[in-house]
Design a protein around this nucleic acid. Structure first.
Length: 743
DNA sequence: ATCCTTGATGAT
DNA sequence: ATCATCAAGGAT
């Protein structure tokens, strides 16, 4: 075919005709479309130096009345991008990881300080996906996307597009050389750029490189979820869901209704959660693993009481708490109960001491640790009440009994503080106040004293006396009122204690004698953190954040232009409709799968009338793009009648087109690539289950040989295949296959 | 007992 | 900002 006799170089600089990579001297770049051509393979070469500089490729050779377009750096920049990427790929001193990092930096790298877009404050903001940034890609890709005709950033990343019958640029309306219009090709350099963008995107989520992956609260699901990074699913390795309450992470005191926009009730005493994720999401206790929430310079906001420490004593309205640390948790050990060094008042332990000194309110959450449900079912235990504690002695008995015992126990407690006999304390014990299951918010406590003592394991531990001071009664009492001011219990271990700290000034949270309730008597400590969950109506600051979020960054806009309206991903085989909307070829075809271009009409008398054209609206707007779909490359065709029922062709996706970073060069298996392949296979199977269309198409092909569409298609395939081969395995020969080969 | 994970802290 | 470390987690 005459049209295919002359071909330019592809995105890898390989001549699509001779498959060789010409040197720079052997290349000629078209002044109009900036496509490089292999001089040796040209039918007619420019004679003079002057004509070389003004050389137009065979595609762009225009009639005399069409003036040539001024040269811009547009595609040169695109070439630079490709060259940069090639340089990275060719650099043998770099590991794959480093290459990925460099690619990432090139395509979606960090925001430069010279950035004019208002991104400086944005980038300061924590909790952003890695989508942000990427001025390098703007400078390079953005320039590369400048329309060869109108010198503007194109709205559509297809290099050559044809208006419906009018050969004009969709944006600038300048006329496009008719030959170029007749033989539109996908811009190979752009395809490379898009590919690389895809690669950087997929390496982002595959965790090939360590990239901090913040997910902003509003983008989190309501429930805990498994991240891309997690190798094992389920709750054991899950990430937290959305935070529902509008308190900052370092909020002290109860969580009120005003901070609970979702329910407008706040966190109430007795509120129950299945796991630490739920507990976190409602703001009662934020850390997922740690039992203490706090900062050494700021104070402690909450603790979880779960019986993990054998020194702990739980008496309901008051308890003795043990600090953290002292255990060797190196590696992945998280369950080492053996203490191997002394605890000190630092980090979390110091945070608790600050709350003690200041008299801050500390939220207390009780937890039934371990396999609570299993415990209830199989560890049916008999109990012995010793003091105010329920000791597990034998494995028999039912839960009901336990509840009953607890009731007795609580009843005993209400009479006064009963110390636990020391001789029994080493036995397995479980707090009578722990919830049946999961975690329960038990209200506000104050840390009245703290000290250090030698623990049961022989090393020093930090100790804290927590006393309840909540306006609501504890979950285990039938009292109508909250806590009263009561005398501190006598703590026998204080005799041997060291580093005793007591509050010297009046507490921040105290009982108001007049009002008879607990409240802030001093200004609560100023939060040093931002509210996680945003309530946009709250402050001007929030408004600003909201406005910023709505304001699309330049990067996002470019990315948007590179993405398909239908699948939302960066385009594969980008196509642009006459109404100037972008789609992956396969997506656009899929959208009209099974539809015919025309429908037959029957008159009342049963006589067949002329077929009526089916309107096929652009998925993005209301324009009828049936003409474009009929022949995306050439507009109308003389074979219209014969192709009457031909549906949009090429519906079988080509598996060999799927390109992924993991399959590059080394051909290492890549999980995402595998998955995509699988998906593609599934898609193919689905499509292949439509025999009618396939057979019709075959019939047409048999009649006419390759249809015009196929010819154009094949040409694009060649360009694509060349691209693919160039990237995947530069040495392998071109492997052009028709769709039939795949089936 | 062991593994794999999250998210906050605090040192740098 | 970045990063090692820590934490009373949750499954196998």
């Amino acid at each position: 075919m005459a049209q295919v006799s002359e071909l330019p170089c592809d995105g890898d600089g390989i001549c699509m005709l001779c498959k060789e990579k010409p040197s720079d001297e052997d290349k000629l770049t078209c002044v109009t479309c900036f496509t490089p051509w292999h001089v040796t393979c040209l039918a007619s070469r420019p004679e003079t130096l002057a004509s070389t500089l003004r050389w137009e490729c065979p595609d762009c050779t225009m009639p005399e009345d069409c003036a040539p377009v001024a040269v811009s750096g547009g595609d040169v920049a695109a070439g630079e991008l490709v060259a940069s990427i090639r340089a990275i790929e060719a650099d043998e001193s770099l590991t794959e990881r480093e290459k990925a990092r460099k690619r990432q930096k090139l395509l979606s790298g960090r925001v430069e300080s010279s950035d004019e877009e208002d991104e400086m404050s944005m980038k300061k903001k924590k909790g952003k996906e890695k989508v942000e940034g990427g001025d390098d890609v703007l400078k390079v890709v953005g320039m590369g996307l400048i329309c060869s005709f109108c010198m503007q950033l194109p709205e559509r990343p297809v290099t050559k597009w044809i208006g419906q019958g009018k050969n004009t640029c969709a944006k600038c309306r300048r006329s496009i050389p008719p030959k170029m219009a007749n033989q539109p090709r996908i811009n190979s350099a752009l395809v490379v750029a898009i590919r690389m963008a895809k690669m950087s995107k997929s390496s982002d989520s595959s965790g090939l490189e360590k990239i901090q992956h913040f997910v902003h609260n509003q983008n989190r699901p309501d429930k805990a979820y498994t991240t891309e990074r997690a190798k094992r699913g389920g709750k054991s390795n899950a990430a937290s869901g959305k935070i529902f309450v509008t308190v900052p992470p370092d909020h002290f005191g109860p969580i009120l209704a005003e901070n609970d926009p979702a329910r407008n009730r706040g966190v109430l005493v007795g509120d129950w959660w299945e796991d630490r994720f739920d507990c976190r999401q409602w703001g009662a206790h934020l850390p997922l693993v740690s039992g203490i929430c706090g900062q050494s310079k700021h104070g402690s906001q909450s603790v979880v009481l779960s019986g993990g420490y054998e020194d702990d004593e739980d008496h309901g309205e008051w308890f003795l708490y043990t600090g953290s640390g002292g255990r060797d948790l190196s590696g992945n050990k998280r369950t080492n109960k053996e203490q191997s060094f002394d605890q000190k008042f630092e980090n979390y332990n110091e945070a608790l001491r600050v709350s003690c000194k200041e008299g801050y309110p500390v939220r207390v959450v009780r937890n039934l640790k371990g396999k609570s449900s299993n415990y209830q079912k199989s560890y049916a235990t008999s109990f012995q009440i010793v003091g105010n504690l329920v000791l597990h002695v034998k494995k028999e008995c039912l839960m009901e009994k336990r509840t009953a015992f607890r009731h007795v126990c609580v009843h005993e407690c209400s009479k006064g503080w009963l110390p636990l006999p020391d001789e029994l304390s080493h036995k397995e014990k479980r707090s009578a106040y722990a919830p049946e299951n999961g975690l329960r918010y038990d209200g506000i406590y104050r840390i009245e004293k703290c000290w250090r003592k030698v623990g049961k394991q022989g090393f020093k531990v930090c100790r804290y006396l927590f006393v309840r001071c909540d306006n609501c009664p504890a979950p285990w009492t039938s009292e109508e009122h909250g806590d009263k001011v009561r005398a501190l219990p006598v703590i026998s271990e204080l005799k041997k204690a060291t580093d005793v700290t007591e509050r010297t000034e009046s507490p921040s949270w105290d009982c108001d004698e007049k009002e008879g309730c607990w409240k802030w008597k001093k200004q609560p400590p100023r939060s040093k953190k931002r509210v996680t969950a945003s309530c946009p109506q709250d402050t001007e600051q929030e408004f600003k954040a909201l406005r910023k979020a709505h304001k699309k960054s330049l990067k996002e806009r470019v990315l948007k232009e590179l993405s398909c309206f239908l699948c939302g991903n960066v385009m594969t085989l980008p196509l642009t409709t006459p109404c100037a909307h972008n789609f992956c070829k396969s997506c656009l075809e899929g959208a009209f799968a099974g539809q015919t271009f025309e429908r037959e009409r029957k008159s009342l008398g049963g006589r067949t009338l002329r077929a009526q054209k089916n309107v096929m609206k652009c998925p993005s707007c209301t324009n009828d793009i049936s003409e474009f779909l009929r022949n995306p490359q050439r507009g109308s065709s003389i074979r219209r009648k014969k192709m009457r029922k031909l549906v949009v062709k090429g519906l079988v996706m080509r598996r060999d087109r799927i390109l992924h970073p993991g399959t590059k060069k080394n051909n290492m298996p890549h999980p995402q690539a595998e998955e995509l392949k699988r998906k593609t296979n599934d898609a193919s199977l689905l499509i292949e289950q439509e025999p009618e269309r396939t057979s019709k198409r075959r019939k047409i092909d048999a009649e006419d040989g390759l249809s015009k569409i196929d010819a154009a298609e094949k040409e694009n395939d060649e360009a694509e295949a060349a691209m693919d081969e160039g990237i995947d395995s530069p040495s392998s020969p071109l492997n052009v296959r028709s769709d039939e080969d795949i089936q």
